[in-house]
Design a protein around this nucleic acid. Sequence first.
DNA 1: CTTCTAAATGACAGTTTTGTAATTTAATCA
DNA 2: TGATTAAATTACAAAACTGTCATTTAGAAG
Lengths: 225, 225
Amino acid sequence: MHVLFVEDESKIANFVNAGLKEHGFVVDHCDNGDQGYESAISNDYDAVVLDIMVPGKDGLSILKSLRRARRNVPVILLTARNELDDRLEGLNLGADDYLAKPFFVEELVARIQAVVRRSAGDRQHLLGVGPLKLDCLTREVTCNQHSVELTTREFNLLEYLMRSPGRVFTRTQVLEHVWGYDFNPSTNVVDVCVQRIRKKLDPIGGSGWIESVRGVGYRFRQSES
Amino acid sequence: MHVLFVEDESKIANFVNAGLKEHGFVVDHCDNGDQGYESAISNDYDAVVLDIMVPGKDGLSILKSLRRARRNVPVILLTARNELDDRLEGLNLGADDYLAKPFFVEELVARIQAVVRRSAGDRQHLLGVGPLKLDCLTREVTCNQHSVELTTREFNLLEYLMRSPGRVFTRTQVLEHVWGYDFNPSTNVVDVCVQRIRKKLDPIGGSGWIESVRGVGYRFRQSES
DNA sequence: CTTCTAAATGACAGTTTTGTAATTTAATCA
DNA sequence: TGATTAAATTACAAAACTGTCATTTAGAAG
């Protein structure tokens, strides 16, 4: 597993670097954005981890350039706690995940692995988070032995959220992946669809699992934490 | 892999018996239906291979009794070439597959394995037969790079047929598995649905893959043979 | 060739799904 | 607390889906 790690704060860099290597990753490290971008574009990494705030070309620009160049390598953004706007923009620009600093190296490792697995296209078809279970082949949804009928759209949205529990998705992202829109029409279909799912899940104990994140979007609640 | 084999003609029995064992199966053999039924009901086989014409309780009765007793062990029927009616009835009674005599042992082995795999619930989600490809997770249908939009019902029907290429399904079977009907209403929905699929597949080169078998039902064409 | 039956086709109507838009409720922050 | 903005909710209309039925076409058998 070959990853690129762009981060200027040398303390963090060294620490994370060592951590990733311990987990068997081969890590290339850059301490500035220009170098980082060059490296990302000219190598074939399994994943790229970008700090948003780095000298030279910043993380978001790197991401934007990569996507414009049609490079679909999975990208994980590292952001400071308060950089919510950047995070949001990053997701909409095509980041695959983000992690707020400070974080545990294990957390980063897990996210990298998840993101790589996902991009490799091997998808689990039995999803279970909390009491909710999805069978993506039969398209059955159950919660404490009870089952609900979801429409195609509803199922797709729920599946999308449940494939990355805990991760927040913007409405734009959802529209892109679940609706296939490649633009951002002013519509509230996502909201409405979420409501419809909630209404169906409520009576069978699936209440509260789709959370709203004000100003950002929606996420499926993680069991623990 | 533990299978029960009910067959009275000793020549065939010995031959097949030996063949199955060579392929690593553990085989129990009965040469009459009464014994066969006892054995099937009291043991926990991975699959049961039934000759329709055996002394004592015949194959179809055994099958019927098993299903009435809610035993879902996979059953493969062996029929003579001319026993089309029995075959048809057998399928409707819940047989998982059938094989017309004479057959190659390899063929039987393959069917047993397919049937066991299916009943174990591990389902392939990428189906490709001939030029047609189904992704059961994304529910995309493609044929020579082109893709079509199928409705839920249409997709389910196509998937059902494609999971057993070459095997003929009666309308009753299709209604049972794709529509979930547990009775046989006089309706031609299956016909209509098949037409709709064909009409969508035609323009992208998927013509002729769903075959009608006059007097019986439909089947998805096998690439070879 | 004719007859009989099964399958294919086409038109229609009821139902469900989907998205829009307007309104109400709730959260955030000064 | 009041103003502001986002999310939830509701009602409605357009579109898509599904099944029925009547009709046409094609296959099998006498």
